[in-house]
Amino acid sequence: MRSLSECARRLTADRGFAGFTIEELCEEAGVSRRTFFNYFAAKEDAVLGFPALRDDDALDAAFVAGGTPTAGAPSADLVDALLELFIARWARMALTASEAERVFAIIEQEPRLHSRILQLVREGEDRTIALVERREGLAAGDIRAHTLVHVVGTLNRVVAEEFLRDHGDAPPSIDEFADRLRTRAAVVRELFG
């Protein structure tokens, strides 16, 4: 999957997004069209590195199963559990600074990719909100689930940007990423105490 994304990014940088077909990408990467669609739903997703089927089912199930809401109040460990879910997702991504820079540069030159990444981010938020609602037994659309996911998601984005800026292409240290995210969350708790 990673080699397909790298190849898609290189072709996009060299020829522009419209300058190659999925067939040309597959030929360049040495895979079949069927293999491509096993990993990605569209060419845009290959360039962005978003797989068609994320293998997050076990993570999601563990998160949902950990909920113990009582009398309409969220589980005592909800925030910490959501932080751990974001940390586990980051660990699976293993993105380096140069990969992120390439993706952002391509997004800037290809407006079609910009709208696709916004769509994927919204879908990810919606999926995570639904997980919080299921874990906590909340009705769909509960403002607490939305607010929590947006706050933790923003912290995650800030820490990811900071982490990539500070570490360049060094192998990502999940422990340091996790410490930074937990520290930011502690600041939010203190501020909203």
Rank of each mutant, 00 (worst) to 15 (best):
residue 73 A to P: 00
residue 145 A to H: 02
residue 63 F to G: 01
residue 177 F to H: 05
residue 152 V to T: 04
residue 132 V to C: 04
residue 180 R to A: 13
residue 115 S to A: 14
residue 127 R to H: 12
residue 82 L to R: 02
residue 55 D to T: 07
residue 18 A to C: 08
residue 55 D to Q: 11
residue 109 Q to M: 12
residue 124 G to E: 06
residue 47 V to D: 07
residue 157 R to N: 09
residue 138 L to R: 02
residue 193 G to R: 11
residue 51 P to R: 13
residue 82 L to P: 04
residue 92 R to Y: 08
residue 52 A to P: 02
residue 149 V to W: 02
residue 65 A to D: 09
residue 102 R to E: 13
residue 157 R to A: 15
residue 68 T to A: 15
residue 14 D to F: 02
residue 22 I to G: 06
residue 191 L to T: 12
residue 113 L to R: 01
residue 50 F to Q: 08
residue 90 W to G: 10
residue 34 R to L: 14
residue 74 P to Q: 10
residue 22 I to P: 00
residue 55 D to M: 12
residue 121 V to W: 08
residue 80 D to V: 02
residue 112 R to H: 09
residue 11 L to Y: 08
residue 187 V to D: 05
residue 188 V to L: 08
residue 66 G to H: 07
residue 99 E to C: 04
residue 127 R to V: 06
residue 184 R to D: 03
residue 19 G to L: 03
residue 50 F to S: 04
residue 135 R to Y: 05
residue 44 E to S: 14
residue 121 V to D: 12
residue 75 S to P: 04
residue 86 F to W: 11
residue 137 G to T: 01
residue 13 A to E: 14
residue 185 A to Q: 12
residue 185 A to T: 13
residue 170 A to C: 05
residue 27 E to N: 12
residue 153 G to S: 05
residue 146 H to E: 14
residue 59 L to S: 05
residue 60 D to W: 04
residue 65 A to H: 03
residue 84 E to D: 12
residue 157 R to M: 13
residue 142 D to C: 06
residue 155 L to M: 09
residue 130 A to H: 01
residue 61 A to F: 02
residue 83 L to V: 14
residue 161 E to P: 00
residue 59 L to N: 02
residue 178 A to Y: 01
residue 28 E to S: 15
residue 80 D to Q: 06
residue 89 R to V: 10
residue 112 R to V: 15
residue 20 F to H: 03
residue 97 A to W: 09
residue 79 V to P: 00
residue 190 E to Y: 11
residue 43 K to L: 08
residue 141 G to Y: 02
residue 100 A to N: 14
residue 82 L to D: 05
residue 88 A to W: 04
residue 103 V to P: 01
residue 118 L to K: 13
residue 99 E to F: 03
residue 79 V to I: 14
residue 100 A to I: 00
residue 162 E to R: 13
residue 33 R to K: 15
residue 124 G to V: 04
residue 101 E to D: 14
residue 66 G to I: 09
residue 86 F to T: 10
residue 70 T to Y: 10
residue 130 A to G: 07
residue 179 D to T: 11
residue 116 R to D: 06
residue 97 A to K: 06
residue 163 F to G: 00
residue 74 P to D: 12
residue 188 V to R: 07
residue 65 A to C: 06
residue 148 L to H: 01
residue 105 A to K: 10
residue 78 L to V: 08
residue 45 D to L: 02
residue 40 F to S: 04
residue 38 N to T: 12
residue 190 E to K: 13
residue 88 A to N: 05
residue 106 I to F: 01
residue 137 G to L: 06
residue 3 S to R: 15
residue 88 A to T: 06
